[in-house]
Amino acid sequence: MRLSKQERAIDTRRKVLIGALVLHRLENGDHASSSRPFLEWLQRELPKFLIREGDRELFDDLLKPHGQEQSPKDDNIAS
């Protein structure tokens, strides 16, 4: 089914607003209690949803556990 221009605009606006809610919740929520399960779900499900590398890079701050960011040279350490 092909959406009309107005339907596409409504669809895009809904996605932007839901995304804004998610980001607001993650930035302002109490991660130690109610937001923690949501963050864990997002970290589990988002990588499966994002298929483009550029899209994944947009969410590096959410997907990588805090304090475990890898630098490119970490991958090439010879033992």
Rank of each mutant, 00 (worst) to 15 (best):
L17W: 08
S4Y: 09
L63H: 01
H24M: 09
L42C: 04
D61P: 03
R52Y: 01
R52W: 00
R14E: 06
K5T: 12
W41F: 13
D75R: 11
L42K: 01
K5N: 06
A78E: 13
L63V: 07
V16R: 00
G67E: 01
P47F: 04
D30N: 14
F59N: 01
L50K: 02
M1W: 13
E53H: 01
F49V: 11
L50G: 00
G19N: 11
D11P: 06
A9R: 12
F38N: 05
L46K: 00
V16K: 05
L46P: 03
G67Y: 06
S4F: 12
K48A: 13
S71D: 13
L50P: 01
R14M: 06
R13Q: 14
R36D: 08
E45C: 12
R56A: 03
D55S: 04
R44K: 11
Q70E: 06
G19Y: 04
R13E: 14
L23E: 15
Q6T: 14
D74C: 07
Q6V: 08
A32K: 09
L17I: 11
H24R: 07
R2K: 12
D55G: 01
E57C: 00
G67T: 07
D30M: 03
S71T: 13
Q70G: 05
R36C: 08
D61N: 05
A32S: 13
D75F: 15
I10D: 09
R2M: 06
P65H: 05
D60H: 04
D60T: 08
N76R: 13
L3I: 03
K15S: 12
R13P: 02
R8H: 09
I18G: 04
I18F: 13
R56W: 03
A9T: 09
E45V: 09
S34F: 10
K15R: 11
D11F: 10
R44P: 04
K64C: 12
H31R: 14
H66R: 14
L58N: 02
S33Y: 09
L21V: 15
R8S: 05
S35E: 07
W41L: 13
S35C: 08
E53A: 02
S4L: 09
A9S: 14
D61M: 10
H31L: 14
H66T: 13
S33I: 04
W41R: 14
D11E: 14
G29F: 00
E45A: 15
R14P: 02
D11V: 02
S33Q: 13
F38M: 03
E40M: 14
D11L: 10
L46F: 05
E45Y: 12
P72S: 04
L62K: 02
A78H: 11
F59E: 00
S34H: 12
D11Y: 12
F59A: 01
I51E: 10
L58A: 11
W41G: 09
L58K: 00
K73Y: 12
K73C: 08
Q68P: 08
W41I: 10
L3T: 07
L46R: 01
R13I: 07
S4G: 10
H66I: 15
L42Y: 02
R8N: 08
P65A: 07
G54S: 04
S35V: 05
S4D: 10
K48L: 12
F38I: 06
E53N: 04
D74R: 03
A20D: 09
T12V: 11
L62S: 03
